[in-house]
Design a protein around this nucleic acid. Sequence first.
DNA 1: TTTATATGTCAATAATTATGGACATATAAA
DNA 2: TTTATATGTCCATAATTATTGACATATAAA
Lengths: 125, 125
Amino acid sequence: MKLETALNAFAALSQETRLLAFRLLVEAGPQGMAAGVISDALGIPHNTLSFHLTHLSQANLVSSRKEGRSIIYMANFEQMRDLIAFMVQDCCSSDLARLHQADNADCAVVEFVDCCIPQSVKTES
Amino acid sequence: MKLETALNAFAALSQETRLLAFRLLVEAGPQGMAAGVISDALGIPHNTLSFHLTHLSQANLVSSRKEGRSIIYMANFEQMRDLIAFMVQDCCSSDLARLHQADNADCAVVEFVDCCIPQSVKTES
DNA sequence: TTTATATGTCAATAATTATGGACATATAAA
DNA sequence: TTTATATGTCCATAATTATTGACATATAAA
């Protein structure tokens, strides 16, 4: 990932409405969510939200498809993954994190060495 | 991690000078780097850089210690980890990512299910 | 002490970004 | 068709953020 791409992604996620919208879309998964539904959920005027969805879209963090008169937005999980990889890759030199392909070959795994999971996020699965 | 904390972290990383400085510090590892060294490395005036380092510091992405007349900054790897956890935690509901403690108990692991490692980052270790 | 070095703070200005009213477009329902 | 719905675009204004000269402080060297 290029520096500029990462900058755009971070900028997109640094604004409250956009971060909330992005989280809704991450939660919604691949099926996505209509612009109006997001607008209602967040209580943001449709034109303001449109501006922010365009911003997220230009940062390649979401994509969209048209369906009837609605536009359905969905999170771009690949870009999210690339952004995490970007953050972690410089750690490799100091061996604080590693990024590798898991043995079963359908996972990318980020390992944080010599640390524990933050309290705020409990162990899943 | 609170929403506000994540917003501050993303905002801190969304500016070129700050992202470059942060990457230098991530590369430098726990021993850190003096403000002046960063300033020289990036070719940024010391007062401008000071503003940006304070910004990173307020976002808790770096910390600092005094050493002689220098101030040594270092990346806060824990905050970085928490930020990644924040990004990934909403995925759990749609099973696109999982965050868990590794078997050997000194790693936190983020697994991205059903995906491959981005081209830009080659497999380590 | 005096001077040089490393860094921070302040304040004015410049640059960038967000907001929402008014209007436009495109689709579906009446 | 006409009307209602869903969403986008444009533009002026408001709000936020970055830059840098001038000055301050703190430490070390001469």
